[in-house]
Design a protein around this nucleic acid. Sequence first.
DNA 1: TATTGTTATACTCTATAACTATA
DNA 2: TATAGTTATAGAGTATAACAATA
Lengths: 160, 160
Amino acid sequence: MSNTQLLDTLLALSTVLAADEERELERRGLTRARVHLLWVIHHQGPRTQAEIATALQVTPRNVTTLVDALEATGFAQRTPHPQDRRAVRVTLTERGRDVMARMDAEHEEFGAALTEGLDPATAEATVIGLQHVLARLTALVAEHAAASEAGRAGPLENTP
Amino acid sequence: MSNTQLLDTLLALSTVLAADEERELERRGLTRARVHLLWVIHHQGPRTQAEIATALQVTPRNVTTLVDALEATGFAQRTPHPQDRRAVRVTLTERGRDVMARMDAEHEEFGAALTEGLDPATAEATVIGLQHVLARLTALVAEHAAASEAGRAGPLENTP
DNA sequence: TATTGTTATACTCTATAACTATA
DNA sequence: TATAGTTATAGAGTATAACAATA
């Protein structure tokens, strides 16, 4: 087995998964960032924009834009926060709940379809192997991040 | 094994891989789209912008912007096409070649590091399982794409 | 007439900084 | 004084449409 055979396969899988996801989202009038936001609310319940910003690891300003778009397209809505008058709570509309329920169901189907025709022993070993790889990867990434804390480049200089 | 355990692990891996890649690129003053372009030239030789657009599955207009940026940051350059005076050929500068060579080397290292500590039998089975999944996935995506050819939504309507 | 690349315009995601209204 | 969310501005990737130069 070559050094990078596993990594290459993973990268190919990522690419195909991402492309498929993108197409599915577009079909529904959604984008990846917006679905991520809906997903947080769907699985954690109504949240303030500040909480959403933390969950998405994104600036509060960004959440404003995303919620604007989701409100305009009818997937989510702002409601006043019962205790704190500064804050708004973002909730799903019925349309939002529907689409998330459908996506959950598709996720299940898709997961099952992926391993169809694969013998159970190999499937099991694949999961074990992947979990090992995920652990290794997480460790490596932490190392990288620590190492690059010191010497980092400035912002990109281009398109003057 | 749950229906989605493998898919969930794959998605987690994709996320971590993407985040790591993004950080590495930023450190070098590059972006994913620009590296993709450099990669095409590095592995296929100098190409015209039209050829690059096809390879990246992106519009020619987009390639103009990317090449502008890569020229401004010194990774690539436009040279006249020897036969066709309409076309330009995009080639790597020394800086571009250097950075791509270094990325290739890191890719190798990274691939080896991922499976460190994993017993060879499981590693082998993981690759076999993944290749099966990739084949299934490609088939599913083709089905999806065909199915959604008919009923597709219009462009997103929001942020008026 | 068809192709190559560009200018013009627009949409989406993202970020920082400054500001308002509330705690 | 600190926090929640907004306006203002900017950079990056992407798209379509119209246009120049060249095949």
